[in-house]
Each structure stands twice: as structure tokens, then as C-alpha cells.
Computed example of a mutant assay.
Amino acid sequence: MTSPPVAVVGCTGLVGSHILQQLISSPQTFTVNALMRRPYPHPIHDPDSKLKALISTDTSTWPDTLGTTSSAALFSALGSTRTDSGSLELQRKIDVDLNVAIARAAKESGVKTYVLISSNGASSASRFPYLQMKGELEDAVIALGFDKTVILRPGLIVGGREKTRMIERPLHLVANLFGAVSGGTLKDSWAQDADVIARAAIRAGTEDAAWDGKGTKMNGKMFWVMSQVDILALGKEPQNL
């Protein structure tokens, strides 16, 4: 049984790269439409790769590009930092404006399922700019009314970043230490591994069975805000792709 095409944006980041790798290594025949600013930097161990890289350094073209694809689901791990963007205003243009534009284009092109990597504590009413932006994005994509909207709210994301924020480095060391000495039990409540988050995202976005007893129905549409507990429960089991 083949699976329908999917799209990924933010796929060179920590969680997004795991989402992309897991999708293209699936035994099912996925076509993965990946919006990228640069070629994918990691090796793809698949001679008949399912990856369709849509590369443009002009991110303003991404919504129109996505609209030309035929994808059943969109996975967004797109995000930036104030340091990388240059200012809070420029970060908002990526984290909120570009994400919303891509989500809107996805809805108009017939995407049925939208999966967003957000953050624990996200709220449009937050006094913290980062969490406020994440909350505004969540509100906007839920309002678009995809058949299924999945929002993952992980805690500290653990993994091999190209750039680790200085403030996070001690937390990463503690999380890795706790994970090593306890088999994960001391870290799981506040830090999750990127590959686990990716696996949970894919399962929620592609497996109907993952939704058993989960999610909330609103105006005939389903949405599921996944807590860290949900992420671990779904992400630590292998997906049935």
C-alpha cells in the first residue's frame, strides 16, 4: 500500500531534519515535497529517493511553490531565533507570517492534515515574545480549518543542533546526563529527543489509529494539541508507515 505525497517545511532544522529522514526512509512509497533554502545537508540512504527538493533562497515564493504540489499532509518545523533573524520583527516574519502564508497555501491546494512543531507554553497571551508568536501561529492555523490539525508542544528539544543557543547548552548537558543514567525517566517530563518528536509528528499526521480517543472536534474539523506526555507515548513506538 502506497501513501500519498506529503510536504515538509523547516526540514534542515533539528526536528524537521528528523521528520524528513524518517519520511524518506519509510518502506512505503512517499513522495516528500520539501521546501528548502539550501540543498539538504545530510546523506540520504535511498537510491530511489522519494525526496522532491523545492529549493529557493527567496522564501516569499514558498507558498506559491507549495500550491503547485499535490500533498495530503504538511509538516511544519519552520522557525528561527531573534539572533539568527536579526531582530524580533524579522523573527516574526518567519515564525508567524511565513508559516501562516504557507499554511494558507496548503489549505487552498487541498492539504487535509497540518502538523506543526510548536513549543510548550505557547500562548498568544504570553508575555514572552517567543511563546506569544508560537501561540499566535497556533491560533491562525487552527482557524484555517484543516480536516486535521496537529500541534506538538515539546519541552526542551534535545539533539545535535548545528547551532545550540548558549542559554540552552547547560540544559542539554543535564538532559543528556539524566537520560543516560535513568533510561530517560528523569528527563522525559521536561526534555524530548528530536527523533522522538519527529516520530510522534509523523504518526499523528499519517496514521488514523494514532487519533483513537484523541483530539477535539470543532466545526466538523479535528485538532489535537499534543503535550509532552502525548509526544512520548506516540514517538517512542515505531510508526507504521
Rank of each mutant, 00 (worst) to 15 (best):
A7S: 15
V8D: 10
C11L: 03
C11K: 00
G13H: 09
G16S: 08
H18E: 15
L20T: 11
I24P: 00
S25A: 14
S26T: 08
S26D: 10
A34S: 13
I44L: 12
S49C: 03
L51N: 00
S56V: 02
T57Q: 15
T57E: 15
D64M: 01
T65I: 14
T65L: 15
S71M: 11
A72T: 06
A73E: 04
L74T: 09
G79W: 02
S80N: 13
L90H: 06
K93S: 13
V96Y: 14
L98K: 09
N99L: 09
A103Q: 10
K107M: 11
G110N: 04
V111Q: 05
T113L: 05
S118R: 06
G121M: 09
A122T: 06
S123D: 15
P129G: 00
P129W: 13
M133P: 00
K134A: 05
I142D: 04
K148M: 06
I151S: 08
G160V: 07
R161G: 10
T164L: 06
P170N: 08
L173D: 01
L177S: 04
A180C: 11
G184E: 08
T185D: 03
D195V: 10
V196K: 14
I197P: 05
I197M: 11
A200R: 11
R203D: 05
T206W: 11
W211T: 03
G213S: 10
M222W: 07
M222Q: 11
F223S: 06
S227E: 12
Q228G: 15
